[in-house]
C-alpha cells in the first residue's frame, strides 16, 4: 500500500477514536465511530484476498448496523427526553438499545459471531488493531453512559465469558482462538462495568498489553495455526519459553499480570453480594484456561519429530522490531507486584 494512503488511514483510525473520546454529543461520538470503521476497511481489504474481502464485508455490515442502531437510540433519546448529552442518559429504552448496539460493536456474546470470522480473514497486524484499538472508542461510550440495567449487562458478560471459553476449545486456528479470548475478556469487563467502571478500564489496559504481546509473538513466528507454533523453538528459543507465560497470563494464573484484573473483579462481585455470579465467572475462566494451556503445550512442552526442513526456519531473521514485543512481554508477565499501585490508580 502507498505509504501516504497508509499514513492517512492510520491518522483516520486515531482521529476517530479521539473524536469519540472527546465528544459529549451523541452525533459526534457516532461520527468518530464511523471514521474508525471507514478508516480500517481499506486496511483490512488491502491484500485483495477472497478471505480478506469477505472478512471486510462482514465487519462492515456489523459495524454499520451497530453504528446506525447507536444513532437511532440516541435520536430516540433526543425525541423522548430532549437530551443529546452522552452522560445524561435517563430513559431506560434508549440506554438498553445503546448497550446492545455497543455490544454488537465490540462483539459481546449473543452478538459475537462476526468476531472470530472477521479476525480469521485478516493478517496479524490488522487483527491486532481490530482487537485492541477498535475496542477503545466503544468502551469510552460504555463507560460514559452509566448503564443501570444490571440484568442485561450481567447476561451479556456471563454469556461472553462462557462463549469465549467454549468456542475456543475446538479451534486450531490461532486467530480464532485469539478472537474467542477477546470475547471472554470483554465479558469480564462487562461483568464489572456497572459496579466499578475503573476496574473495567484496568482490565481493558491489561488485556491490551497481553493481547499485544500474544499477537506479536505469533507474528514473529508467522504462525496462524497451532501446528506451525510447534516449530517456533527452532526460530526463537527464548521467546518460545516466554510465550506460555504470556498465554497463561491471558488465562489469568496467579503470579502473572492477567491474574490482577480477574482477582479484583471477583473481589468486587463478591463485595456486591453476587457470590454465585463470581463463582460462575471463575468457572468459565477455566474453559479459556484450557485452550491457553493447549497452546502452551503445543508450543513449548512438546518437541515434534521434525525433519531437516522443519528446523530450517531459524536461518531467516525476521525484520520485525522486537523492542515493543520485549516491553509488552515484560509488562504482560511481571506487573502483578504493582497491584497496590494499580488499585490506588484505578479503584479508589
Amino acid at each position: 500500500m502507498n505509504p501516504y494512503i497508509m499514513a492517512l488511514l492510520l491518522f483516520g483510525l486515531g482521529l476517530g477514536t479521539t473524536i469519540t473520546f472527546a465528544s459529549s454529543h451523541w452525533l459526534l461520538a457516532w461520527m468518530g465511530l464511523e471514521i474508525n470503521t471507514l478508516a480500517i476497511i481499506p486496511l483490512m481489504a488491502q491484500h485483495h484476498h477472497p478471505r480478506a474481502v469477505e472478512a471486510t464485508t462482514k465487519y462492515f455490515l456489523t459495524q454499520a448496523t451497530a453504528a446506525a442502531m447507536l444513532l437511532f437510540a440516541s435520536t430516540t433519546n433526543a425525541w423522548l427526553t430532549g437530551e443529546w448529552d452522552i452522560q445524561q442518559m435517563s430513559h431506560p429504552l434508549p440506554t438498553t438499545m445503546i448497550t446492545l448496539a455497543l455490544a454488537l460493536k465490540i462483539g459481546l456474546a449473543p452478538m459475537h459471531s462476526w468476531m472470530p470470522e472477521v479476525l480469521q480473514g485478516l493478517d496479524l497486524t490488522t487483527g491486532l488493531i481490530l482487537s485492541t484499538w477498535q475496542k477503545l472508542a466503544p468502551f469510552a461510550l460504555f463507560l460514559q453512559i452509566h448503564p443501570n440495567n444490571s440484568t442485561i449487562l450481567i447476561t451479556l458478560g456471563l454469556a461472553s465469558t462462557l462463549v469465549g471459553g467454549w468456542g475456543g476449545l475446538n479451534q486450531t486456528q490461532l486467530r480464532k482462538i485469539l478472537a474467542y479470548s477477546s470475547i471472554a475478556h470483554l465479558g469480564w469487563m462487562t461483568l464489572v462495568l456497572q459496579f466499578a467502571p475503573s476496574l473495567t478500564l484496568l482490565t481493558l489496559l491489561t488485556y491490551f498489553v497481553m493481547t499485544f504481546s500474544a499477537f506479536l509473538v505469533f507474528k514473529l513466528n508467522k504462525a496462524t495455526t497451532v501446528n506451525s507454533l510447534a516449530i517456533s523453538w527452532a526460530k526463537t528459543p527464548i521467546l518460545t519459553s516466554l510465550a506460555p507465560l504470556i498465554l497463561l497470563s491471558l488465562g489469568g494464573l496467579p503470579p502473572l499480570t492477567g491474574f490482577l484484573p480477574k482477582w479484583l473483579i471477583l473481589q468486587e462481585l463478591t463485595k456486591q453480594g453476587l457470590p454465585l455470579l463470581a463463582t460462575f465467572a471463575a468457572l468459565t475462566a477455566l474453559l479459556s484456561l484450557y485452550f491457553y494451556l493447549r497452546l502452551s503445550y503445543a508450543m513449548t512442552l512438546t518437541m515434534f519429530p521434525n525433519n531437516l526442513a522443519g528446523s530450517a526456519p531459524w536461518r531467516f531473521h525476521s525484520p520485525q522490531l522486537t523492542l515493543p514485543l520485549a516491553v509488552s512481554t515484560a509488562t504482560a508477565i511481571l506487573t502483578l507486584p504493582l497491584a497496590p499501585a494499580a488499585m490506588a490508580l484505578f479503584a479508589p
Partner: peptide, 20 residues
C-alpha cells in the same frame, strides 16, 4: 457520513463480486 458509508459498501460489493 452515510454517503461515505454507502460508497464503502458499494466498493465492498464490487470487491466481493470480483473475489467470489
Amino acid at each position: 457520513f452515510s454517503a461515505c458509508e454507502a460508497s464503502a459498501g458499494l466498493a465492498l460489493l464490487v470487491a466481493t463480486a470480483r473475489t467470489h
